[in-house]
Simulated scan of single mutants.
Amino acid sequence: MRPDDLERGLVPAHEFSDDHKIAVYRAIETRRDVRDQFLDEPLSDALVEKLLRAAHAAPSVGFMQPWNFTLVTDEAVRQRAWEAFSRANAEAAEMFGEEQQVLYRSLKLEGIRKAPLSICVTCDPTRGGDVVLGRTHNPRMDVYSTVCAIQNLWLAARAEGIGVGWVSIFHDADIRDILAIPEHIEIVAWLCVGKVDMLYDEPELAVKGWRQRLPLEELVFRDRWGEK
């Protein structure tokens, strides 16, 4: 390291130890979308703050940090959200063929009522101003940055033994009304968060026959689309 590197804010980029590498990959490989395995136990404020700090450490285009996190613990608010989800879920079931409908309806999607905490993650597209470094040619980069924050939170939660479930089946207007979210703010995710003592060894939708993981080699191209 050159003497002036520290003055420029640079620090050595050391490779992680083998134990730390194993821990990182284990969190990635064993992360699950939890739908029904939440325990009826509260989360401490300190633990929730750790998860939020992990989310807030995510990369963001132009360092705009467009995310907000609305913590929902009030039972009445969660009940309204569950009712909104239930209406949308019934509509979603009708969109599948008859055989898939049976399997769809058998899936337990009780996270909103069972998890002690919900977090509505939103994106504020105005936070970086009218022109944001890195978003000049792709206006969706702010949302992609917000999704990175969600992934950070999810992996930190896995390391802490905390389950997370992403609820996406709802009408935007319903959640916007329930949480009084301004029109210019984009709703990205409703996360159910809580302690778990059991997780599926493989993704639940794979275990229950909805879909299986695609082979990686089918998804990797070299130099141009479709070239293996």
Results as ranks from 00 to 15, higher is better:
185 I>L: 03
110 E>M: 08
168 S>H: 12
127 R>G: 10
126 T>V: 03
99 E>A: 13
133 L>M: 14
8 R>F: 06
35 R>W: 10
86 S>Y: 14
61 V>E: 02
64 M>P: 00
23 A>E: 15
218 E>S: 13
111 G>Q: 10
102 V>N: 02
2 R>T: 08
155 L>P: 03
111 G>A: 12
129 G>A: 13
54 A>Y: 03
15 E>D: 13
66 P>F: 07
184 H>T: 09
43 L>D: 03
168 S>Q: 12
162 I>C: 10
93 A>P: 13
19 D>R: 08
91 E>G: 04
196 V>S: 03
142 D>H: 14
166 W>E: 01
222 R>G: 07
85 F>G: 00
34 V>N: 01
121 V>Q: 03
4 D>A: 07
191 L>A: 04
79 Q>R: 14
28 I>D: 05
103 L>F: 07
82 W>F: 15
158 R>A: 02
104 Y>I: 06
156 A>K: 00
124 D>L: 08
77 V>C: 08
213 R>I: 10
159 A>H: 08
83 E>A: 09
197 D>S: 14
170 F>A: 08
95 M>V: 01
55 A>Y: 07
180 A>F: 01
101 Q>Y: 11
76 A>K: 14
132 V>A: 07
180 A>G: 04
138 N>R: 13
136 T>A: 11
43 L>R: 02
2 R>Y: 10
39 L>A: 05
1 M>F: 12
221 F>N: 09
88 A>V: 00
143 V>E: 15
173 A>T: 07
99 E>R: 10
226 G>T: 11
175 I>A: 02
213 R>L: 12
202 E>Y: 11
183 E>L: 01
184 H>R: 09
161 G>S: 01
200 Y>G: 12
193 V>R: 06
80 R>W: 03
36 D>H: 15
69 F>E: 00
226 G>Q: 12
201 D>I: 04
185 I>N: 01
57 A>T: 04
117 L>T: 12
125 P>L: 06
215 P>D: 07
122 T>C: 05
33 D>N: 15
132 V>S: 03
19 D>P: 00
141 M>Y: 09
143 V>D: 09
173 A>F: 00
209 G>L: 08
96 F>P: 07
106 S>C: 07
194 G>L: 04
